[in-house]
């Protein structure tokens, strides 16, 4: 399982966000360049139609591959009351021919994206990952070098944390509390519920840029 929230930020404020995250996390950022291929099962395959993501990490000297399955989000009044999305997620590293394998099994490419940006991985009671990336689409199949932004001038911020059915309330609390620190720059909510950019972003960014993140927002 994972807990996840998303938000958007104008590209001009990303540097300020980076300074803030650097101060909050106390770790070095990692470069992010991920080619994301979303596959769907052929019409006749499977009890129900299914989707699987094949991720290729292009930031590594040797590209590494991951298979990811994201399930339906948790439902019910309990889930509605929390501001974080909790959903089943399973990942597995795989050898480089994993895409060819899924094609052979009867999966077809639905769409592909290239995420370019940076990520922070850190411990805050629980393991939290923050990614800030521009989402790009390919004009030609697999042409990652010619990718263009889906939303120019905007970047996607995602905060995720692995969880289990036993500890997810604790993880949700940790993610929620962490998100409050970012509030002056951006608002984070459940994926699919966009809240837009925050009006205080420009002022908060200016303040961060002027003193390198020394001020408590």
């Amino acid at each position: 399982m994972e807990c996840v929230v998303q938000g958007i930020i104008e590209t001009q404020h990303v540097e300020a966000l980076e300074i803030l995250l650097q101060g909050l996390c106390g770790v070095q950022k990692e470069r992010l360049r991920i080619h994301e291929l979303c596959l769907k099962s052929s019409p006749n395959l499977g009890a129900v139609s299914s989707e699987v993501q094949i991720l290729c990490d292009l930031a590594q000297p040797e590209p590494s591959w991951t298979v990811r399955h994201v399930g339906g989000s948790m439902r019910g009044t309990g889930a509605e009351q929390i501001s974080v999305l909790v959903r089943p997620m399973v990942e597995s590293k795989a050898s480089k021919n994993v895409l060819r394998f899924f094609y052979a099994l009867g999966y077809k490419l639905d769409h592909e994206l290239l995420r370019v940006g940076f990520a922070f991985h850190f411990q805050r009671g629980v393991q939290i990952t923050v990614t800030v990336s521009s989402v790009n689409k390919m004009l030609k199949l697999h042409a990652t070098d010619e990718a263009v932004p889906v939303t120019p001038g905007m970047q996607l911020v995602e905060v995720t944390a692995p969880a289990t059915s036993e500890n997810y309330t604790e993880v949700v609390a940790a993610v929620t509390s962490f998100c409050e620190h970012l509030a002056p720059l951006l608002h984070l909510s459940k994926p699919g519920i966009s809240t837009g950019v925050v009006p205080t972003a420009a002022a908060a960014a200016a303040s961060l840029m002027s003193d390198g993140g020394g001020t408590t927002l």
């Binding site: 395959l45 499977g46 699987v52 590293k93 050898s95 021919n97 394998f101 999966y107």
Partner: peptide, 24 residues
Amino acid sequence: LRSHRIVVESDVSVQNIMEKLQSY
């Protein structure tokens, strides 16, 4: 997958993914 001459190495968690996909 002998018919396609493919061998894939992955983590053990991939079994869990196959189970969730319900395609095989």
